[in-house]
Design a protein around this nucleic acid. Structure first.
Length: 389
DNA sequence: TTATATT
């Protein structure tokens, strides 16, 4: 499995945090087809590091530079540890895998760790999966730094920034105090204009402390007003109120999306209703409707999710291509490329399992007939055609 | 003062 990914690894290789151009192509195509598809337009998922991608070992003082242990950031909220394992397991053998969750609520904190057996697979995972789009997120895959108290609580909140200041300029301002792990400038969701607020995460807390000393209440070069620099609120230190409201949030309420997207779902609802007599989970009937399907023979429904049949894949197709294509549409629990036992080449088809019916339906509607390379894919719910009576 | 960067 490790070897098979090599070809695509080079295809998808990005080396940096930015999504690779190839992915962009697929996404662009899907957005065109969908008009306002599940690939949400929100730009809140763009924290990045300009100066480095933190994939190189820490220069000094680092004892155990693990070349097998990865940290995965910006995971979709609803992604489970099993899905994480499934995704990264498609690269190579995993020694351990952990999705970090809130101790009290059990909710995903949006990041996790994947430790491979083979360092080569870890490197391959960075090259192939960093920048992968999953639902509204663009995941980041990088080497985990050795765990240490010194790297915790190193995130700074910066306000009062000149509206014209770019992320690069922000990093330039702060980089004199240490190694920046990630940075972000918040922008108005509508206009895209800077809100004058940003975040800087340093490698170590001491660096963050020095930056506060040096930059808080100081005017950046050319600025007319001083900026405020302080430690960012730690998400793990929530008020009991916030925790409560989090607990009472419906688990079905994920990514409500823009109006256009809801309109799309509404139309889809009607289609589904006509075809199967089902309502999606976005309608009041959601839970009841889906539950009532248990035991009824609906195409592709396997109890653990909705199995999708993907036909006309190229011989060198691999799992990563299926993640790439289906991941943006919603929760994908599993992907599988069917290969010839002897040649190890794809036999032209594969399967994808998605948790939610409507997301699977949108994926099918969008990807059926999709041109991948010189092939036109056929995508549908899996049927039991081959079943012998 | 963001969805969530150290198990």
């Amino acid at each position: 499995m490790a070897v098979r990914l090599c070809d695509v690894a080079s295809l998808l290789r990005s080396g940096s945090w930015a999504p690779e151009p190839w992915t962009g192509q697929v996404i662009a195509a899907m957005e065109t087809q969908l008009s306002n598809g599940p690939t949400c337009n929100n730009t809140s998922n763009g924290p990045s590091t300009i100066s480095n991608n933190c994939s190189s070992p820490v220069e000094s003082g680092s004892i155990e530079d693990s070349k097998t242990n990865l940290i995965v950031n910006y995971l979709p909220q609803n992604m489970t540890q099993e899905e994480l394992k499934s995704l990264f397991g498609s690269i190579g053998e995993i020694e351990s895998c952990k999705l970090v969750r809130d101790k009290i609520t059990g909710q995903s904190l949006g990041y996790g760790f994947v430790n491979y057996v083979d360092p080569k697979d870890a490197e391959k995972a960075i090259n192939t999966l960093n920048g992968l789009r999953l639902q509204t997120k663009t995941i980041k895959v990088s080497y985990a730094r050795p765990s240490s108290a010194s790297i915790r609580d190193a995130n700074l909140y910066v306000s009062g920034l000149p509206k014209t200041m770019t992320q690069k300029e922000l990093e330039q301002l702060f980089s004199q105090y240490g190694r920046i792990i990630t940075s972000r400038i918040l922008v108005d969701q509508v206009t895209g204009v800077s809100r004058g607020v940003g975040f800087i995460r340093f490698d170590r807390r001491v660096e963050a402390e020095e930056a506060i000393k040096g930059l808080n209440c100081q005017k950046p070069p050319g600025a007319t007003e001083p900026i405020t620099v302080k430690f960012a609120n730690n998400p793990s230190q929530k008020t009991s109120q916030a925790l409560l409201s989090q607990l009472y949030q419906s688990p079905n309420r994920r990514y409500p999306g823009p109006l256009a997207q809801q309109a799309q779902r509404f139309r889809l609802d009607n289609l589904l209703n006509m075809a199967y007599g089902v309502k999606s989970r976005f309608s009041p009937m959601a839970i009841e409707g889906v539950t009532s399907l248990a035991g009824i023979n609906i195409p592709g429904h396997a109890g653990t999710g909705w199995c999708i049949f993907v036909y006309n894949l190229a011989p060198d197709a691999d799992e990563s291509i299926l993640w790439q294509m289906f991941g943006p549409f919603g929760a994908v629990t599993n992907v599988k490329v069917i290969r010839d036992f002897n040649t190890n080449k794809c036999k032209g088809f594969g399967f994808v399992t998605m948790t939610n019916y409507d997301e699977a339906a949108v994926a099918i509607a969008s990807l059926n007939g999709y041109r991948l390379g010189d092939r036109v894919l056929q995508v549908s719910f899996k049927t039991n055609k081959t079943h012998k009576a």
